[in-house]
Design a protein around this nucleic acid. Sequence first.
RNA 1: GGGUGAUUAGCUCAGUUGGUAGAGCGCUUCCUUUACACGGAAGAUGUCGGGAGUUCGAGCCUCUCAUCACCCA
Length: 1009
Amino acid sequence: MAMEKTFDAGTREPLIYTKWEEAGAFKAGANAKAGAETFTIMLPPPNVTGFLHVGHAFNHTLMDILIRWKRMQGFDTLWQPGLDHAGIATQLVVEKQLAELGQKRSDYSREDFIAKIWEWKAVSGGTIQEQDKRIGAGMDWDRSAFTMDENFHDAVIKVFVDMYNKGFIYRGKRLVNWDPHFETAISDLEVENIETDGHMWHFKYPLANGATYEYVEKDEDGVETLRETRNYIAIATTRPETMLGDGAVAVHPTDERYAPIVGMLCEIPVGPKAQRRLIPIITDEYPDKTFGSGAVKITGAHDFNDYQVAKRSNIPMYNLMDTKAAMRADGRPYVEEAATAQAIANGEQTFDEAMIAAMNMVPDEYRGMDRFDARKAVIDAITAEGLAVMHDVTRTEKDEDGNTVEITETVPYVESKKIMQPFGDRSKVVIEPMLTDQWYVDTAQIVEPALDAVRSGRTKIMPESGEKVYFHWLENIEPWCISRQLWWGHQIPVWYAPVIEDGVIITGKYEMFCAATEEEAVEKARIFYGEKANVINGQGKRFEDQEHTLASFIDALKNSMRHGDGPIQVRLYRDDDVLDTWFSSGLWPFGTLGWPNDTPELAKYFPGDVLITGQDILFFWVARMMMMSQAVMDKDPFHTVYLHQLMRDAKGEKMSKTRGNVIDPLVMVDEYGADALRFTMGQMAALGGVLKISEDRIKGYRNFGTKLWNAFSFAEHYEIPNAGTHALPKAENTLNKWIIGETAKVREVVDAALETYRFNDAANALYAFTWGKVCDWYVEFSKPILQGEDASAKLETEATLRWVLDQALIMLHPIMPFITEELWGQADNRANLLVTQEWPTFTAADLVDADADREMNWVINLIESVRSARAQSHVPAGAKVPLVVMGLDAKGQSAWDNNSALIMRLARIETLEHVEAFPKGCVTIPMEGGTFGLPLEGLIDVKEEIARLEKTMQKLGKELGGLRGRLNNPNFVASAPEEVITEARENLALREEEEAQLKAAIARLAELG
RNA sequence: GGGUGAUUAGCUCAGUUGGUAGAGCGCUUCCUUUACACGGAAGAUGUCGGGAGUUCGAGCCUCUCAUCACCCA
């Protein structure tokens, strides 16, 4: 059956993939040699909601190349697949679906909503795994893990409990990044800071009791530039709505302008006149004297910098907003709250965290307003009261008569400026710093082993620049907020219960019991309370309170669960929050292998080898896996981290739906086949390189596949037997020796490249070998032999060609698995599928024949030179011409004799004649060992030919100049290494010979002209 | 503001301990010669961002400036 004209990727690829799966080729340990070392790659689990985008395609292709290569080498390989439950992203998908039905999450109970997500997962989750098969990714699918699987859940809970018991995890009230859309805390890494157009308003905070002071400004030289009596301190802010929660005004301790009023009270210029709050003017290092007025309002509960200042000076932090970032509407009337706050500010009343948290400092008129509406309302109220800082603005206008007039107005001083605003990376809404109770990993306690892994070289990050970034981040690591106010995820295994003192439940406090199960928590509680209380097992039921908040739980317990004079009835209340998705994916390297159970896979495949992932999740995931692995397993999870950049379009822009520049890998697979896409990915993967993908490239590598295809089509055309086992032929023929040597060379290059993760070098070497060596030269050279009469040479060449083509298939397979498997399968009888074929180990030292190498390069050089001379002399491509040679030495003669058939065929030469002198009008071709010439009198343009030779001379002259300059420089000869000098001398001799030949040729032509 | 990286042919990019610049695509000319027009042959194109330094020698090392990108504040 004749081969098709090209490889039909569309129909053949899925069939080939099925064959691999049926053969179990991707299973852990497939093709492993007895006692082989393991080679493990953990797939960075895509979101369960995910679709295969071009970034996955790249990432997964690199892993597949490595795994296929190692598998063929006989390693015991595992490529562990799986999916991440992706808390927010997944909840969002299902909420969107409900929205289409006109429903929302709160229409369901927590259990029912989670059941909905599981339903969704069963139907639509993990589409990406099927898509992965399209690009040929060979993972052990039967082992596919999910971060919400039962076993994985056990692992997560166990780690939490262990870390809690070791004191690595704690609960605390901190300022967190709050996402008002999803109504949850998020980590620093989930916040994107984007520069946006903002405004800075300037307001006056009047001093208490009508106090005044001399406000003096001086320039750099200490010369007074402004002096006035003021009864206020000016504040600049981009967030006026948070003024309601101010606890102080801070100035720098060295700021002389405000020195007279430090320690005084000033008034927040907003809210009902009768209850204006007075706050202290304090000093702190934080304010920048040169920025704004130099005075900063301190709103500890709504700004990260202010939070630090407030903590330092024990300034109360009033939380102004609810979970949707609307102004709070709970608590006591403003009049009462303000009175309490004033007592605190006056130092007349002590306060604690819980008390401050309960206070609502939003005046009644703003309660319930959206934060941005509240901002407008506050600005308007202050401006109306005349407490905005004003300035004069002059503009020019034409009056009725067309004359230009200047109009000066006094208007509120509002600066328009770019501000960095935090946005949620998922929700795209403005993040609100919020003071809430959250769970934290005390990363400072577990970071050291992860740092040490890289410092000591146990774990290598590639490219090396990644290590610097890694150190910088980990050395300055912040506590990791791991609680999320979501439903989809691993619920925190902590149960709360009331604090009981003297037989009374204390409001605002709680006991915590951390345990793997509710039963264990109850048991712990029983032991803890002893006689003090009677702990009831709630059996998973949550306390019957609509709000489900801890505070209301304890209040309700206090009010309703007391039974006469007997022991207090205590029921446990489980924390509602779930864990950050990255907490569970941090356990991926061992959770997927069955930990905490002691499985054979865990023993065998952990720790793994290489992690290949995007640079963007170095902190999110890589660093956390390294910390968690050490904290839980006392081992590094892998020895190498390969980081790559984000995939961009051909122009280097980020791909986005709105830009419309998204390249869909599956569309590319449909159009050009998976191999073309994969080769493009491999070829692009230079360490640290920017990844720009274009369809043209993919097309180019599709053509490469066709070229390979046609090499086989050639072999078939010449009816070269293809038995299935092709042993390394014992070659006598120079040509065959040469290509065998080239094959060995490329094998070494490919292995060396893949060992060091230089996928691009491997791909390029294979491309150059297959196309540039095998197809361009070897196949052409073999034609005269295959068509010739020498039966033994023919047999040897046939065997060599088959062997070389097989080696090309083997070595190309990791990058282009489909077409190579297809071509492999065309042999009569193969013992293996290519996917489990043994990888070669032959070396250049064994197989390169230096003489054959030199001879074939000489032949190629001669053919190229003749072709070049012909083209420049406009000899018709089809015409056969005679060749003459002068002073051919023994080596040259032998090279010619061995290869005259090839040369004459490929250079279209009729005859070779030895001459004493070149005829007139002869084109000169200088070669090592003799000068060749094309007698083209009448055909060549003498002037043109002289110009051509002179151009060559010029190039040569440059080279000669450089070489002579170096060799004549005594410093070079004295200090350069011996081999460099020798090389230069040899080079010079060769060039000088060539120069002499060219000079002679030009002289001859000049006679003619 | 801090950090990291980039700047090499028209485009996209390689260039591994410093030894005198490469690939793919594109472009120009010629060729349908029985593996392949998703092809073959030939060809053109570089002050390696600017400047300075170290060195016998710098695309590569050092400093500096410029521009761009990304990350973190």
